[in-house]
Design a binder for these strands. Structure first.
Lengths: 208, 208, 208, 208
DNA sequence: AATGAATGAGGTTTCATTCAT
DNA sequence: AATGAATGAAACCTCATTCAT
């Protein structure tokens, strides 16, 4: 859409299933990095899975690291936009937290590869990229924290536990999902989300 | 350095800083694997850090994977023995859970490299080893779960949330600690343990 | 920049700084090949420096080798036409030699990249091209040699040293200029030319 | 010989024809770099010619550049020690210069690959190495220059041409030898040396 | 005349491991 | 128990070139 009006020049990009080469590369890389780890996945593995040649990959991505960075960028965009909708809601604060808490579980499960990769491969990014990702991730953390603080101010939530600690606590539980949740066993995503959310809220509503 | 100037008497010392060669290798490997990742750490890195040559390493360990497996074995032993003491206690069940929950936080922080490594590198083990580690880990999980079930049976803890889910929920929060807790910032380990434990117990004591 | 603000009338300008695309490519290639070497310079480097894309280069030149061959052709043309003017002169033979010897030094310094490249990259040409360049170069060598022989025949120059050897001797000194002469240090081109020429002539005029 | 008294430990190095692996590598690399150019010679080419594997090469040399640097070091050592013997002689100064001038020609021809490589590949060294080589080369240049200056001071040689320029002039002729001298055609090395030397001395003895 | 996409072969280097002592 | 030499497979990446417009 962005380029629909610009005159294309040069050989037109190849698309398969409506996906361009870089899209397919990101897709394939995400799957493989999550399954086997970044370092255990060779560039050859990625391009084979994407059905292109190595040259094509290096036409779009400066390096294997760059590919990883692109994946991170994509995941961060997705996470942020998802959370934003709950924060912006007009519902009472505890309801907004409960809904967001449940949703982040569902979203995590629906994007298992992304989440598996996220914390496992942070150290593979070059320092510059890592800092940037951490900063972006911090924004996400803070959006949730702001909701907790609002609940504490209103007196609906306990105040003896620092909001930061609450967020790290809950997100830990969430980020750990990829290591145990499996589609074939374990409760449905919505069930997990609802129970996790309830445990969080019940803990926060407890009197000091 | 400690022994460089001491006159050697009898058999030559096989230890440096009171550690034997294989011990130093495991120590060095743990540090490096946690910091840079298993695949990004070369055998050369490890033996350099341990102050020996590659030949020495292959004398004690069959392969680089074997070294990793040894680290896992050590970590598992440590975790299990730690938890066992709480399970075996005669205190009331909620107190035992609370104490164990707080302790696992402290122990995790006191062994950050081990915990960092644990979930990040599981997929690097060969399938056989991975299964074995997962089974051992399952025992750990189950020991905690048994305590939760005991609390649910006694009526002290809510029963509408599956004990398995509770354990995965809480251990998630714990295993996530290495990604955000830093000695220079953040609350003391005991404080984190106490608050985490309280959030868990308050959630579990909530009425359905 | 010269034409960026001029209103275009008629056909679009195909030149930048008065140079056509192929001219700019040769220019850029010469500069880069001389500085970094032929193999260490990528086609991308060249087209970037020339401000065009790779496609444009392959429109004008069959290959990277072809670009190098074109540079050689240009250099050879220049050298030959320069020498011809001295050979054709009516001055006494020793004066003609002295003038040509001095001039070749000045010309070499004024075209340092070309001369740097000339002997350093001969082996990069394909065999066919290399033979052709050597043959052309031989003509140049022979033109100079003919002058020396003429001086020997007339008795003005010593005959105990083969004219071929004289030419290889002197041209060696000249071709070595790019490795040590620098604009910021060292004598002015005309001074070098005059002294080199004098050393040559004094050696040749010496009695056997 | 250097290590004949040190107790060897570890697997003993393999030798073929009395040459160790690193020696064979340097030998093979010199030959190939001179013939095809540094960049056009692959590491595979070198190790094949030396009859070892790539791993063995990287056991002794940090990189392909390092191999080139080692070759340069060897050539410089050889050149310097050769010249030193003439400088130290007690013969009259003009005879010392004449002898050194003739000898450098013979030595150059006897080591064509080294000399071919020398100026053709200087720019392939990393900047640090290049500076070091240029400095070492400068010492060589200066040793010769000192002799010329001594001759100028004694009044035996002309003083109107700077000694630096004389050395650059003559060494140019010498370094150009590899581009034209061939064993099958052209005069014997000693003949070339004698004539070159005579041309130099006759030029320098000429009255101003 | 010129573009940007895509290829595929080949380059240097790394590295876990084996070997002879 | 430990060394330093040597292997060989595989890794990431570069690059001259071709292709469809």
């Amino acid at each position: 859409m962005a380029s629909s009006r610009s005159r294309r020049i040069g050989r037109p990009p190849v698309t398969v299933n409506g996906m361009t080469v870089p899209e397919r590369l990101v897709e394939a890389a995400l799957e493989l990095f999550a399954a086997k780890g970044f370092e255990s996945t060779s560039v050859q593995d990625v391009v084979d899975a994407a059905g292109v040649t190595k040259g094509a990959m290096y036409h779009y991505f400066a390096s294997k690291d760059d590919l990883l960075a692109e994946i991170y960028a994509r995941v961060l965009r997705m996470q942020l936009s998802q959370l934003e909708s709950f924060v912006a809601s007009r519902a009472p604060i505890t309801e907004r937290i409960a809904a967001a808490a449940a949703d982040v579980v569902v979203t995590t499960i629906e994007n298992l590869p992304s989440t598996t990769l996220f914390f496992r491969s942070l150290h593979q990014l070059n320092p510059e990229h890592e800092l940037q990702v951490r900063a972006e991730r911090r924004r996400y953390h803070d959006m949730f924290r702001e909701m907790v603080i609002e609940g504490q101010r209103s007196g609906e939530l306990r105040s003896d536990i620092d909001a930061d600690l609450v967020v790290d606590y809950y997100f830990g539980a969430v980020h750990h999902l990829p290591t145990w949740w499996r589609p074939e066993r374990g409760p449905a995503p919505e069930v997990v989300g609802e129970k996790f959310s309830r445990m969080l809220l019940d803990a926060l509503r407890a009197t000091d």
